[in-house]
Computed example of a mutant assay.
Amino acid sequence: MRRETQNILLVLLGGALLKISFSGLYLRYVQKGLLPLLIAAGTIMIGLALFAIIRDIRRGKAVSDDEHGHSHSSRSTWLMLLPVLAVFLISPPALGGDVVSSAADTNQTQRSRNLLGELPAGDVIPLSMTEFVTRTAWDESGTLDGRRVKLTGFLTRADGDTFVARLAISCCAADARPLKVKLAGDVPSLPNEQWVEVTGQVVPKSASEKNSWVPSFTVESSTPVQEPAEPYES
């Protein structure tokens, strides 16, 4: 592959990183805290390509493949174009129900033995799926029992049961782990992958090793919502 083509591809790849960074699309792939690294990487790629282009112009000639000892086409370099096309043409959505369905039940949650804080006061408590599932698995004092909670996630179904689910990541989408809660009561009849807010109460002692620590949740009300800007929890 010619030097000029390599430089152009590098500019495009760097531009793709900056595009997903400033448009917020990066949240479909990595955690929010990695934004500065993405911007830096995109800027460096564009800077290196521009430096090479300017250097070649100052030399007064384009550097040919033969001058660099490449007598054949480097097909692997064209692979740099694939992520660019994915960002500009495809823009893959955030991971969803297919990951929840295919993931092993043992990855249901990263249960922690850290001390859990007190629940806030109020008639309805908004909780992340991570905190809700963790509490149902480890909080033996039953602080959630009898408390009305609001959860936000997307709907998924398996074996006749309906779940509200969310994906949590430690770094990026590659390490996503599913969090899900089995719905009972006034279960919404919306399609799979629809994001919802559900309000209700946990079924006490419903999460156990036998059901892979998936708690049950009695739904009192539900509202369809748009996918949040940050679809993953951390």
Rank of each mutant, 00 (worst) to 15 (best):
M1V: 06
T5K: 08
Q6R: 13
I8P: 01
L10Y: 04
L17D: 01
L17T: 06
L18C: 11
F22W: 15
G24D: 09
L25H: 15
Y26S: 08
Y26V: 03
L27T: 15
V30H: 06
Q31M: 11
L34E: 03
L34R: 03
P36K: 05
P36R: 05
L37A: 13
A40M: 08
A41H: 06
T43K: 06
I44W: 03
I46A: 03
G47A: 13
L50W: 03
L50S: 10
L50N: 05
F51N: 09
I54V: 14
R58Y: 01
K61L: 02
V63C: 00
D66E: 14
E67M: 14
G69Q: 10
S73N: 13
S74C: 00
S76H: 11
W78T: 00
M80C: 14
L81D: 04
L81G: 10
L81I: 10
L85A: 15
A86C: 13
S91L: 02
D98H: 14
V99S: 11
S102L: 08
A104F: 07
Q108L: 05
R113K: 13
R113A: 13
N114P: 00
L115P: 05
E118R: 05
L119H: 08
A121G: 08
P126G: 07
T130E: 14
E131L: 03
T136W: 00
T136A: 11
V149C: 02
K150V: 12
T152H: 07
F154G: 07
F154I: 09
F154T: 11
R157N: 09
G160P: 04
G160R: 08
T162R: 12
F163Y: 15
R166S: 02
R166P: 00
A168F: 07
I169L: 10
S170M: 08
A174M: 11
A174V: 12
R177K: 13
L179T: 02
K180Q: 12
K182W: 05
L183I: 06
D186H: 10
D186Q: 09
V187Q: 06
V187D: 04
P188W: 07
P188V: 05
S189I: 02
P191E: 12
N192T: 12
W195S: 10
V196T: 07
V196N: 08
E197F: 03
E197R: 14
V198R: 04
Q201G: 01
V203S: 06
K205L: 04
K205P: 00
S206K: 06
A207I: 01
P215A: 04
S216Q: 13
S216I: 01
E220V: 07
S221Y: 00
T223E: 14
A229W: 02
A229N: 13
E230K: 13
E230V: 14
P231L: 06
S234D: 10
